[in-house]
């Protein structure tokens, strides 16, 4: 169980994340919907220790992680797939996956986890020796998710994994996320593709201007007419946002 409370991120005077609290249970996908610039990326980076946060408590299975360096947080069982994937493009697929298991916690089950990842993304198995930067965006995203899974996390954070993917790749990726959840991992998913992500999520939070402005079960959010406006960023009066491109 991941429990985040009162987390804030400031860039100078601008408060990108304003005292947000949320929780992710094992075996569920919690979704964060919000427009560009609403603070989603800063929130995930702060939870993962990649971005300094103030006043936060980030507890994973009761252990306090706030303030720890990012590499230690991975060791505690929380893995982030960042926006833009963060894969090692110059290295091969196999090397990326091996590095995923660099954390000591991941060593004992490394072979088993590798098997799981290759079952989940059979395409990676065919391309173990390929240099990652020569692969398509969707394949690189698979490497990024696979690498995160190799660290044997309890909680997986994903920042807009569908960004720039073809609809087909997107479908494949979301199906994989649902299977990862079914294996008992907790997933915190940040997405702009509300339609597809609400279809696999269990619960969701709506975020605007760094604050949580609503939450509920995925089904209730799907049926809520206000959700359309909220995740488009139109919940704030006087702030027009283009509709998502549906990719």
């Amino acid at each position: 169980m991941l429990e985040v409370s009162n987390i804030s991120v400031a860039y100078g005077k601008h408060l990108a994340v304003d005292s947000i609290g949320l929780r992710v249970a094992p075996g569920e996908i919690a979704l964060i919907l919000g427009a560009n610039g609403s603070g989603k990326t800063s929130l995930l980076k702060a939870i993962a220790g990649m971005q300094p946060a103030t006043g936060a408590s980030v507890r994973l299975a009761g252990r306090e992680l706030a303030g720890l360096p990012a590499h230690t947080i991975v060791e505690a069982g929380l893995a982030l797939v960042p926006e833009g994937r963060g894969v090692f493009g110059e290295l091969t697929v196999r090397e990326n996956l091996e590095l995923g298991a660099f954390a000591k916690r991941a060593r004992p089950a490394e072979a088993k986890n590798l098997r799981h990842v290759l079952e989940l993304f059979p395409r990676l198995g065919e391309r173990l020796a390929q240099q990652v930067r020569t692969m398509s965006g969707g394949e690189q995203q698979m490497v990024a998710v696979g690498r995160a899974l190799m660290s044997a996390p309890e909680i997986l954070l994903l920042d807009e994994p569908s960004l720039g993917l073809s609809p087909l790749m997107c479908k494949e990726l979301f199906a994989a996320l649902a299977r990862i959840r079914d294996k008992g991992l907790g997933i915190l998913l940040v997405e702009q593709n509300a339609k597809r992500s609400l279809a696999i999520a269990d619960r969701g939070y709506l975020i605007a201007n760094g604050r949580i402005v609503g939450d509920g079960s995925a089904a209730s959010l799907r049926d809520d007419p206000a959700v359309q406006r909220a995740y488009l960023g139109a919940a704030e009066p006087g702030r027009a946002m283009p509709p998502p491109d549906g990719a």
Partner: peptide, 15 residues
């Protein structure tokens, strides 16, 4: 080598 090619991403894998 991972630190050489992408020091920003290296902490993501506990390096």
């Amino acid at each position: 080598r991972a630190v050489a090619v992408d020091p920003q991403s290296a902490p993501l894998v506990a390096i």
